[in-house]
Design a protein around this nucleic acid. Structure first.
Lengths: 339, 339
DNA sequence: CCACACTTTGCACACGTGAACAATCCGTCC
DNA sequence: GGACGGATTGTTCACGTGTGCAAAGTGTGG
């Protein structure tokens, strides 16, 4: 049995109201009794029952961090960075509940109420999440959406400018002198897959190069799928001399396929990735990629969410966070024909 | 404002108790009224207030998943696998709260009470967590400890037999013919670092080889630290021909250092890792390593915890999960001298 | 000495839910 | 016809906390 304010009240010979006031720094109490009661509470190891508090105060002290899915499609590095960033800001003031949106959908999002969450951060990777986001907004729960861009003005939306990041990477490959630049695309249904592909096409168009359909190989954001996609690209009659991969895991798979085929990166085929995953700097050759500051974005999301919870609804703006091209070793100029 | 059972009661012309009974499938109610009330509840979009339920039923519907730290020392793949495994079992029946033990310590674990958590899974990597574990047990919260072995009989403890795993890996290197086998050790203070080092020493002892102090390089479980440690090992006068790394991230760094030095793995130096991290199969050369079934372990932990919550305390046993040597390409027999 | 203000405390209720107990209705059996 | 029992519903209280309002105590100024 745990200690309640009534227990303390009885021992201190006061009413439970007085104890409540002592614990909450109310001005309606004598300093002396406050200290006396607090000492007693400390001694008895009193911890308030947060559920009772929640019931009366309508504050749950829980923040939800929801991902499109916890299973395939969410890379470990991305997931870890996001949880860390949010957790760092919340520390012990709030409890962080981590969930996959797909796991909740079965119950029609019934378990998600304004009573059970003070606020929600949704790390959205797909338009499939829209029903979830609508449900959250409808219930009036403070919401920040991370990673995927929404229609303007729905809620606070923090995204990296992915298309720009991809243009940087593909532009870099083109500047090195590559003309046959292929792409391994992301998981179908994921918005980022579409955006990154557009960035690729725009970069080519800006250089006056036509997009070849057979140069875009479908992937799934997993290492395996990158391996398989690269194998297909290598079988093409006019083999690409460079490949941009929609994330680093697939780039890793692609490099594996290149090695398998007896070729070398970057000499025979230049490779660029996206995400700057934990391992990117340390594979051989070190991966040239685009960094998205996930941890920073999630920290910002958490800060803004707390602000919204504690001070009320801010303007629903869209915040763009800059990506950064990280040049390492996996991309080099093409070999001259005949060399 | 959200709908409560009292609202429904008023509209249906019954008492709130009757509504409660309708929602909870009580036998003390007429089927007809039950259906009528349920239809009404559905129509009004009623969702029960879990905090009120918690208050009266002493069940919080929250399960805690605690890591030693969410920051350095916990690799992304490990973290992701653990959260996924637990989440998969819990699905939507419970809310999963993810936290770092270090983040809670500041508040003296005051926020962790039997009222706020129905059960806790601790993924412990260090003896520093003992104060936390003691605090949880003292409060009578069902507890499963994952990953680190405890004194027998404290609570349900699920661990992989890491020493055996290391012996397999080092034994494999020895069997290939290596005599100068070095090790890059784990983060000081982490129990796994000690256990894995012991495994290494035992394997050498079993083969009648003395442990050389200069062959054990300190690491931190990060890729960078593996890189730095390997650089140090490469500077030794009698260079090792094989190196066992206490995790895959450090093995990645080690391979990087080997490439930097103009050497090749596995031809010049054989490398073996530990964990079978997501990227292990896809780096070049593919990493020979030891697989720990983290996802399976965490699924088991979640299942056993639910069982304990719902059916009462089971025997506090220690469950060993077998590790598995995964032979890939990064380890090969040593080159003959003079070749 | 009284009126008034201020400080400090307690009483009673509310939050939303579940459960023990009482009350009512209906049918059955002796 | 009265006693009994089962089915169904309502009344009341409890869970632990915060708050509006009343009450008691203290001091101050006229």
């Amino acid at each position: 049995m745990s200690v309640t304010i009534k227990d303390i009240a009885k021992l201190a010979g006061v009413s439970h109201t007085t104890v409540s006031r002592a614990m909450n720094d109310s001005p309606l109490i004598n300093d002396e009794t406050k200290l006396r009661i607090r000492a007693l509470a400390e001694q008895l190891g009193y911890t308030p029952n947060l559920y009772a508090k929640s019931l009366v105060s309508d504050r749950s002290h829980h923040v939800g961090l929801f991902f499109t899915t916890l299973y395939t499609g969410t890379s470990a590095g991305f997931f870890h960075d996001a949880v860390r960033g949010v957790s760092e800001v919340l520390r012990s003031g709030y409890q962080l509940v981590v969930k996959g949106i797909d796991d909740c959908r079965a119950g029609g999002f019934h378990t998600i109420t304004s009573k059970s969450f003070d606020g929600i951060i949704a790390v959205s990777q797909s338009e499939e999440d829209d029903d979830f986001l609508a449900s959250v907004r409808e219930k009036g729960i403070p919401l920040v959406v991370l990673n995927r861009q929404l229609e303007e003005g729905q809620c606070l939306n923090i995204v990296s400018d992915e298309a720009e990041g991809v243009r940087q990477a593909v532009g870099y490959l083109l500047k090195l002198g590559h003309e046959n630049v292929a792409m391994i695309a992301g998981k179908p249904g994921f918005k980022s897959a579409v955006v990154r592909r557009s960035g690729y096409e725009e970069a080519l168009a800006a250089a006056g190069i036509d997009v070849r359909r057979d140069y875009v190989a479908a992937g799934e954001y997993t290492v395996e799928s990158g391996l398989a996609a690269m194998r297909r690209l290598l079988r093409l009659r006019e083999r690409p001399t460079a490949v941009f991969c929609a994330n680093d895991q697939m780039a890793l798979g692609a490099m594996k396929a290149i090695a398998e085929a007896g070729l070398r990166a970057p000499e025979d085929i230049a490779v660029a990735g996206f995400d700057d995953d934990v391992f990117a700097a340390y594979v051989t050759p070190a991966l040239t990629t685009v960094r998205r500051p996930i941890a920073e974005m999630s920290r910002m999301a958490a800060q803004r969410l707390l602000q919204e919870i504690e001070q009320g609804r801010p303007a629903p703006e869209t915040v763009y966070v800059r990506t950064e091209l990280v040049v390492r070793e996996s991309a080099a100029p093409p070999q001259k024909p005949g060399m």
